[in-house]
Nucleic acid binder design. Sequence first.
DNA 1: CACATATTGGACTGTACAGTCTAGTCCAAT
DNA 2: ATTGGACTAGACTGTACAGTCCAATATGTG
Lengths: 194, 194
Amino acid sequence: MAPPTQDNRQRIIAAAREAFMTEGYRSSIDHIAQIAGVAKQTVYNHFPTKEALFDEMTSDNMNLFLVSLSDSPDNPRQALLEFGRKYYEVVLTGQCVAWMRMIAAEAPRFPDMAARTYKLGPVAMLEQLTEYLSRAMASKKLRKDDPQLAAEILYGMLSGAERTRMLFGAEREPYDQEKRVTAIIDCFMRAYQP
Amino acid sequence: MAPPTQDNRQRIIAAAREAFMTEGYRSSIDHIAQIAGVAKQTVYNHFPTKEALFDEMTSDNMNLFLVSLSDSPDNPRQALLEFGRKYYEVVLTGQCVAWMRMIAAEAPRFPDMAARTYKLGPVAMLEQLTEYLSRAMASKKLRKDDPQLAAEILYGMLSGAERTRMLFGAEREPYDQEKRVTAIIDCFMRAYQP
DNA sequence: CACATATTGGACTGTACAGTCTAGTCCAAT
DNA sequence: ATTGGACTAGACTGTACAGTCCAATATGTG
């Protein structure tokens, strides 16, 4: 009935994640404390303000939604396919979209937090892609072109319509995700064949 | 000092648009009334609740961000280029992104509104594109393929990375928008040449 | 003019919530 | 056994805001 500090801190952050993700910043401290199974004052023992808690939880969250990209430039199609599949599994997820929705909503109020998140999320992913495509282009596996633009285009194809749909909370008629990823990567490969 | 009803109604809606767009749903009725230059009670004379006002203003807003697509299937590249340019001018705009950010943020709370908006915005645009691509494919101007998927891919390429960036409120190093649109359409044309 | 209706400003109610405070409990180390 | 730090429960303060009420005023119509 008197667990150590660090434990409570983690519980509070986890509760904050859950609450903020589902209700946005309007979620109350009382509620978060309740989810964490902790007294309100304990929350304030660990974080001076609601804002600080919010900030901490987003920092904590960043690495949850990263997708790695194999660095074998020999078979771009295969590597990109894998990437696409993982991307769909990790990023185009209720969880991740809820998070993004919340970040976007609060971006005007917390520009620094939003900028940081943007950098550690989409930008990191784009840089990874750019790097990869650049190498693949250098070794003539892909058409020589602006690798950054190509990365952005691929990123757009993967996330674009689907993420928009999810942001609006719309349902989608059942469809074959694997087929979709394959079609997208094939499309990209057609456009960027050497 | 006592303008007729219809006039006030419009002023209130306009004020609501401005307020909701910049501050989200948390913007207060008092504030909206103040922007409209109208007494709070007047707002309630026209709209029973804040929710009703919000709903009305989104309905009113829908047709603000539509992009038309010429229906000459003879020269897809040209038609799509024009479409892309208009899209960038209209949709990838601070205004429109602020609006989308707000809709997304409130989607869990107002699912009907979000669904309606989604349908009249992105879906309408996608249907238009699908229709166009389908005809272009039929007349052999484009590679025969699933036109809906092609539309979603094109939509993604156009909006994807750029919209994500804007949603996060990030700045972009100066760049040539026209060049970007051209590159995107060219990429699409490469992938979908007959 | 008289009436109905819209508007105004401001007071008011009730609720939700951030953040503070207090009194007391539990635990570990000295 | 005492001290100190974290914790708890709950009361409390101050503020912001949705929505109501009211008394006074302007407007247009019959």
